[in-house]
Lab assay of single mutants.
Amino acid sequence: TGEEYIAVGDFTAQQVGDLTFKKGEILLAIEKKPDGWWIAKDAKGNEGLVPRTYLEPYS
């Protein structure tokens, strides 16, 4: 299990392996990579890379 984050903006996948999401979606951070791209999972179970700058902790 990971930590929940809320998307603060829309993001469209730029390449294969990225995860597209919309502002307000809750994402589960699976792995926090030091380069600023995290592996996350959305509510539908889709998994991919997301930019850290689009996420804020969800409580």
Rank of each mutant, 00 (worst) to 15 (best):
residue 16 V to E: 14
residue 10 D to E: 06
residue 5 Y to P: 00
residue 8 V to F: 04
residue 29 A to W: 02
residue 27 L to H: 01
residue 12 T to H: 10
residue 24 G to D: 06
residue 53 T to Q: 14
residue 25 E to Y: 04
residue 17 G to A: 05
residue 37 W to D: 04
residue 28 L to G: 03
residue 42 D to G: 03
residue 22 K to T: 08
residue 9 G to A: 15
residue 12 T to E: 11
residue 8 V to N: 10
residue 46 N to H: 09
residue 17 G to F: 05
residue 51 P to E: 07
residue 54 Y to L: 15
residue 44 K to R: 13
residue 49 L to Y: 14
residue 11 F to M: 04
residue 55 L to M: 05
residue 27 L to K: 01
residue 55 L to A: 00
residue 50 V to F: 01
residue 15 Q to I: 09
residue 44 K to N: 14
residue 51 P to A: 06
residue 18 D to Y: 15
residue 21 F to T: 02
residue 57 P to F: 08
residue 5 Y to V: 03
residue 9 G to K: 15
residue 50 V to M: 02
residue 10 D to W: 04
residue 41 K to N: 03
residue 5 Y to I: 02
residue 54 Y to E: 07
residue 19 L to W: 00
residue 1 T to L: 13
residue 20 T to L: 03
residue 59 S to C: 14
residue 29 A to T: 07
residue 23 K to C: 12
residue 47 E to F: 14
residue 16 V to R: 11
residue 19 L to A: 00
residue 15 Q to Y: 10
residue 9 G to Y: 15
residue 4 E to S: 13
residue 46 N to G: 07
residue 46 N to D: 08
residue 23 K to P: 03
residue 27 L to R: 00
residue 14 Q to M: 12
residue 14 Q to W: 09
residue 46 N to K: 09
residue 45 G to I: 00
residue 56 E to C: 13
residue 25 E to I: 03
residue 37 W to Y: 09
residue 45 G to A: 03
residue 55 L to I: 08
residue 15 Q to W: 08
residue 13 A to M: 06
residue 40 A to S: 03
residue 36 G to A: 04
residue 22 K to M: 09
residue 55 L to Q: 00
residue 20 T to W: 03
residue 21 F to R: 00
residue 17 G to H: 06
residue 32 K to E: 07
residue 25 E to W: 07
residue 48 G to C: 04
residue 46 N to C: 08
residue 52 R to F: 12
residue 1 T to G: 13
residue 28 L to M: 11
residue 23 K to Q: 08
residue 25 E to F: 04
residue 27 L to Q: 00
residue 42 D to R: 00
residue 38 W to C: 04
residue 18 D to N: 10
residue 41 K to Q: 11
residue 25 E to V: 05
residue 46 N to T: 08
residue 32 K to H: 06
residue 18 D to F: 15
residue 20 T to C: 07
residue 48 G to T: 00
residue 40 A to H: 01
residue 32 K to M: 09
residue 26 I to C: 07
residue 35 D to R: 02
residue 37 W to M: 09
residue 26 I to K: 07
residue 18 D to A: 10
residue 26 I to R: 07
residue 32 K to S: 05
residue 58 Y to C: 10
residue 47 E to D: 05
residue 53 T to P: 07
residue 23 K to I: 08
residue 7 A to G: 04
residue 45 G to K: 03
residue 1 T to S: 13
residue 24 G to A: 03
residue 29 A to E: 02
residue 20 T to V: 04
residue 21 F to Q: 01
residue 5 Y to F: 11
residue 3 E to C: 14
residue 8 V to Y: 04
residue 44 K to C: 14
residue 30 I to K: 06
residue 10 D to K: 02
residue 33 K to M: 10
residue 35 D to G: 13
residue 35 D to A: 04
residue 12 T to P: 05
residue 45 G to V: 00
residue 1 T to H: 14
residue 16 V to P: 15
residue 14 Q to A: 11
residue 44 K to I: 09
residue 39 I to D: 02
residue 29 A to N: 02
residue 33 K to H: 12
residue 56 E to H: 08
residue 49 L to Q: 09
residue 30 I to F: 06
residue 21 F to I: 11
residue 21 F to A: 03
residue 48 G to P: 00
residue 53 T to F: 12
residue 28 L to T: 12
residue 8 V to Q: 07
residue 17 G to S: 06
residue 3 E to I: 11
residue 50 V to K: 00
residue 2 G to W: 15
residue 46 N to M: 08
residue 26 I to D: 00
residue 16 V to T: 12
residue 43 A to P: 08
residue 54 Y to V: 09
residue 17 G to K: 04
residue 6 I to T: 05
residue 26 I to N: 02
residue 54 Y to F: 13
residue 46 N to E: 08
residue 20 T to R: 03
residue 19 L to Q: 01
residue 12 T to R: 09
residue 56 E to I: 12
residue 32 K to F: 07
residue 49 L to A: 10
residue 7 A to S: 07
residue 33 K to T: 09
residue 28 L to Q: 10
residue 36 G to K: 03
residue 18 D to W: 15
residue 31 E to T: 10
residue 56 E to N: 06
residue 20 T to F: 03
residue 59 S to N: 14
residue 29 A to G: 04
residue 22 K to E: 06
residue 11 F to K: 03
residue 23 K to E: 07
residue 22 K to A: 08
residue 47 E to K: 12
residue 40 A to D: 01
residue 59 S to W: 13
residue 25 E to S: 08
residue 1 T to D: 12
residue 11 F to S: 03
residue 38 W to S: 00
residue 2 G to S: 12
residue 22 K to Y: 10
